[in-house]
Computed example of a mutant assay.
Amino acid sequence: MTDRSVHRLHPAMREDIGDLITQRPLPGPHIEQLDPFLFLNHHGPQTYPPHNRGLPFGPHPHRGFETVTFILEGELAHRDNAGHESIIGAGGVQWMTAGRGIVHAEVSPRAFLERGGPVEILQLWLNLPSRLKMSEPAYTGLQRADIPELSLDGGKVALDLIAGEYEGKSGPVRSLTGVFMSTLRMRAGGTFRIDGLEDRSVFLYVARGVVQVGNHADLVSPMHLVELDETGDAVAIRAERDALVVLGHAAPIREPVVAHGPFVMTTREEITQAILDYQAGRFGAPLG
């Protein structure tokens, strides 16, 4: 086994959405995508006062990809026009397949609007290959208790297994494309190593804390995406301070990516068709 080395570190760039603190490492000035990982927004951390307006993500459409939303603090209410509805709390995850088209809203629950509180949310976009872009929409809402937790390195590392397999355990999400997705909660001094990464794109984002990746000289501070070299089949991570890391890997799709707002397709013509289909109501009934 050969460990991958760090190619480049990408800091999240500040790009607030209204009064929601938002930082984005992907895409960034020096990286467009980590095929098939397309986009990551880091919202918060911040504290909303009582009688607030909540999150600004009212009804909007998507087509051609999947969203994975990590609720680190607070609560998130999901509702879509395929009939899915949930309120997911801290430590939970929402996994939505937009497929051929869905309209959804991700907002703060009514109780949060009244009382306020802390908010920290990550949203990651996963591309779908052209053969799956018109799949049926789907949604899975997972509370923290629904996600298997593996205790590693003498209890210094907790791996929350969302999708894929690790040490004989399976995550509750069955990805259409075999994506592995997890979060690592690491105590200072804890180490984690994962292999089997040959011909896989690795997504590694440090949400909190400080880690060292492999033998890279520079430590990775919070809100940095780690871009790894493509050679090697393993990754080693050591926590210098208590850390929260999002770790995923997937087979690259290697197809053109044409994105326009909430649509991700492979050609400009498909984007035009997505807009026409949405305007004509072919994404389903409006979400009031």
Results as ranks from 00 to 15, higher is better:
H10N: 04
L128F: 14
G44A: 01
V6R: 11
F192G: 00
L225P: 03
P56S: 12
T231M: 12
T67S: 02
G54T: 13
I271G: 00
P256Q: 09
G284L: 07
S201R: 05
R200G: 02
D277G: 09
P27E: 10
R100T: 02
S221G: 08
E230Y: 05
R254D: 02
W125G: 04
W95E: 02
Q143G: 04
V202F: 04
E149V: 08
S86R: 13
M265S: 01
I162L: 03
D233K: 11
G168R: 03
M13H: 02
I17Y: 10
S130C: 05
G141R: 06
G58F: 14
L228F: 13
R185I: 05
E114V: 09
T266I: 03
S182F: 13
L132P: 01
T140W: 04
F65N: 04
Y139W: 10
G288F: 15
V226F: 15
V246S: 01
W125P: 03
I271Q: 10
P27Y: 07
R63K: 14
I194A: 07
A145L: 02
V206L: 15
L20R: 03
H43Q: 09
F283Y: 07
P25F: 15
L219H: 14
Q123S: 04
A251N: 06
R100F: 09
S108I: 11
A111Y: 14
A217I: 12
D35E: 06
G154A: 10
I31V: 09
W95R: 01
G117H: 06
L113T: 12
G117W: 14
S221V: 09
V202T: 02
T267E: 06
S151H: 07
F57K: 00
H62K: 04
R238P: 01
H7P: 01
T97L: 05
D218S: 10
V157P: 06
G83C: 05
H7T: 05
Q23I: 13
L204R: 13
P36T: 03
I237Y: 13
F57I: 12
A251E: 13
L219R: 05
V107I: 14
I17L: 14
E32S: 06
R208F: 10
L161S: 02
P56D: 14
N215H: 15
H84S: 04
P118F: 09
V235Q: 15
G64K: 08
F180T: 03
A250Y: 02
V179E: 10
R187T: 08
F65E: 05
R100H: 09
P36R: 00
A239F: 11
P29N: 11
D229W: 08
S5M: 06
G18H: 03
Q273A: 12
I237F: 15
H43R: 00
L124R: 04
G54V: 04
A77R: 03
L204S: 08
M134A: 08
M181F: 08
E198C: 03
A234F: 02
I71G: 00
P129F: 12
G28A: 11
G288H: 15
V226S: 01
S108A: 11
G190H: 07
